[in-house]
């Protein structure tokens, strides 16, 4: 049996909260701890288990700070889980990280390029480190850019001259250039103008229709999740609280109402107990309190 594209089991991730030395103090002094107590580590991913099958677009929908990027980073070998395991096509992301790296690529919410180099120079580098020759890169690139609605002349200008939308399209181009078997799209359309957003979404759908690559897409945009994803997992406070096809998720909360009339918003609210905006406000409060 072929292993799933992604499989995680009981993944936990904590950040911060080093050892609390004041805890070692004997009684009269331990009162120092009341003010000085270190905050415990933040539990950012809680027992995350899910599987994405080959060829599917698997969505992870959650508010800011719910742990989406942390999950993507663990899958892309940039973070080590504190417990549990994650496999990409059966390969362990910790022990077989170099094999995993050659199978994946990633788009993050911020484009991350060498800003004074041109887009072509950037892609030449990021393609080469995946083992592609400059000739192959130059052959593949124009097609990808055209499908993203990106004018070729602009690809020769320094990245810093490009708009955010154009930079993000370049980031999408960079990751598809290396023909990854698994693509990790971490909020690829966040902060984009509506036009660029549509271009990127259309491209993702085209890729799904034409290739058998698997895509994990995180977003906090309900419509986007519904538009693009075969299955969706809701993540709140680092925990996956529900999972299924958009239809199945609606059905779960329908209770007699016609399924088509239920919005994803409603589903999210009923299954997580919150509206996604509230969840975001809460996350902001948590951040502000830090």
């Amino acid at each position: 049996m072929a292993s799933p594209a992604i499989e995680t089991r009981h993944v936990n991730k904590y950040f911060g909260g080093g050892f609390d030395y004041l805890r070692l103090l004997p009684p009269p002094f331990d009162r120092l701890r009341a003010n000085g107590a270190k905050k415990g580590p933040a539990h950012v991913l809680r027992d995350v288990s899910f599987a994405a099958q080959r060829g599917e677009i698997y969505g992870v929908l959650g508010a800011n700070g719910s742990g989406k990027s942390t999950l993507v980073r663990i899958l892309s070998t940039l973070l080590l889980p504190d417990s549990g395991e994650a496999r990409i096509f059966g390969l362990d992301v910790v022990r077989q990280s170099s094999e995993v790296r050659s199978l994946i690529n990633r788009v993050s919410a911020d484009p991350s390029f060498f800003r004074n180099m041109s887009a072509v120079e950037n892609l030449l580098f990021f393609g080469r480190v995946y083992g592609f020759s400059p000739a192959e890169i130059k052959r593949r690139l124009p097609g990808i850019l055209a499908r993203l609605g990106f004018e070729w002349e602009r690809a020769l200008e320094p990245m810093s001259h490009l708009s955010r939308g154009q930079q993000q399209k370049m980031a999408v181009a960079r990751s598809f250039l290396t023909s990854p078997v698994l693509m990790l799209l971490d909020e690829p359309t966040t902060g984009l103008d509506p036009r660029s957003k549509r271009d990127v979404q259309a491209f993702v759908r085209q890729v799904r229709d034409e290739h058998d690559s698997t895509i994990l897409l995180t977003t906090h945009d309900m419509e986007e999740a519904e538009l693009l994803c075969d299955r969706i997992a809701f993540i709140a406070n680092g925990r996956i609280v529900a999972e299924g096809t958009p239809f199945k998720l609606r059905e779960r909360v329908a209770r007699g109402r016609p399924v088509e009339e239920i919005t994803m918003e409603t589903v999210f609210m009923e299954l997580t107990g919150k509206r996604i905006e509230e969840d975001e406000e809460e996350a902001e409060k948590v951040l502000a309190a830090r």
Binding site: R101, S102, S112, F113, R115, V129
Partner: peptide, 11 residues
């Protein structure tokens, strides 16, 4: 430059 993650995750 903000590229650290993309460079370090390359194979």
């Amino acid at each position: 430059e903000g590229t650290i993650e993309h460079t370090l995750m390359a194979p």
